[in-house]
């Protein structure tokens, strides 16, 4: 018990430090004291600092925290639901659904512009968010509908993965027939970023994630029962169909909203739950849910800092950073699992 508490305190401390570090690092140097001053409402030495901190860095930090915890929770519950270590928030085609939405939007706009001969400057970020949300939720609707029909979770998992491939294929076709200039917005979105979300967008993102997280926390007991498999969970009095439906809805909200605003952010959702299980040596969701929230937020902040390449004028695509850090974690998990699970 003490060990757990220590890890929680450390995680909390790292989250706080990373949060401050995110506010501190950037192309403009602002002293740490000034940043803390701005946060508690003091007048800064230079007024532009206040703008940078409050309008740019703070929303980005909040977005990273929210996205990190949302993706980690949905990854955790997908892994429990499918009893598969490689399941994650995007396994059911959420990201490909969102991508399809965005791709259709872009193609439709371009076609309309060509037909009408009217050329606008581009597609607004809000339109992309709406298109991504629509795409993700229609895929999730299909999958949840399937989940009510299909009994086996493994079948559902395979169907979800295949569905994702099929949708990605459609996106590929759409991109193939588009002019490079037209798909600029799509490409930027698909690189992923926590920096494009301002206070206005956060007002939509926050409630989505709150509801999704509360949904998940309220299902904590069912999630624990599901660790033992479908039959044991049923014999413990759990209504599997309802639980499965609720977990899927929660995942759609969590991962769907994050994807819409930040693009498909890879690997955080898969990797963080594994890290936390190993760290706490536990599978109990009453420990893991708060743990992945803290660790996921921290990891998202780290990825955001690295993607910003502090001290340089360049920035990296967020997705590249999370993949480079996430993939080794997955490799470690697979090798570990082969040692402990496959050799009974």
């Amino acid at each position: 018990m003490n060990r757990n508490l220590t890890i929680f305190v450390l995680l909390g401390f790292s989250l706080l430090s990373l949060f401050l570090l995110t506010l501190f690092l950037g192309s403009v140097h602002i002293p740490l004291g000034e940043i803390v001053g701005i946060l508690i409402g003091n007048e800064p030495t230079r007024s532009v600092w206040e703008k940078i901190v409050l309008e740019l860095r703070l929303p980005a930090a909040f977005t990273a925290i929210l996205a990190g915890l949302a993706l980690s929770i949905s990854g955790l519950q997908m892994q429990t639901l499918f009893r598969n270590p490689l399941a994650g928030p995007y396994v059911l085609g959420i990201s490909s659904g969102a991508s399809l939405g965005v791709a259709i939007l872009i193609l439709a706009t371009v076609t309309l512009q060509t037909l009408s001969g009217f050329n606008s400057t581009g597609i607004s970020p809000l339109a992309i968010v709406i298109a991504a949300t629509l795409g993700a939720s229609s895929v999730m609707l299909l999958i949840t509908f399937l989940a009510m029909k299909v009994k086996s979770t493994l079948t559902l998992l395979i169907v979800g993965v295949m569905f994702g491939y099929a949708v990605s294929g459609l996106v590929g076709i759409l991109i193939y027939f588009s002019k490079p200039d037209d798909i600029q917005a799509y490409l930027l979105w698909s690189f992923g970023s926590f920096r494009g979300t301002g206070w206005r967008e956060l007002k939509i993102l926050l409630p989505c994630i709150l509801i999704g997280a509360i949904y998940s926390i309220a299902r904590l007991k069912s999630l624990n029962a599901m660790l033992l498999g479908d039959d044991y969970a049923t014999s413990l009095g759990q209504n599997l169909k309802r639980t499965r439906f609720e977990i899927l809805v929660s995942t759609a909200l969590l991962a769907g909203s994050v994807t819409a605003f930040c693009g498909p952010v890879a690997f955080i959702g898969i990797a963080i739950p594994h890290l936390c299980r190993a760290l706490f040596r536990q599978s109990d969701h009453s420990v893991l849910i708060p743990a992945v929230m803290l660790a996921g937020s921290s990891m998202a902040l780290i990825a955001n800092i690295i993607a910003g390449m502090p001290g340089s004028d360049y920035a990296l695509p967020l997705n590249a950073v999370t993949s480079i850090f996430g993939a080794p974690v997955i490799i470690w998990v697979v090798i570990r699992q082969h040692r402990s699970l496959d050799t009974p």
Binding site: L228, R277, F280, Q282
Partner: peptide, 14 residues
């Protein structure tokens, strides 16, 4: 209550 065949594939649990 039931005890089923096969070992439960839970990785980290006391």
């Amino acid at each position: 209550s039931v005890v089923l065949t096969g070992k439960p594939a839970v990785n980290f649990m006391s």
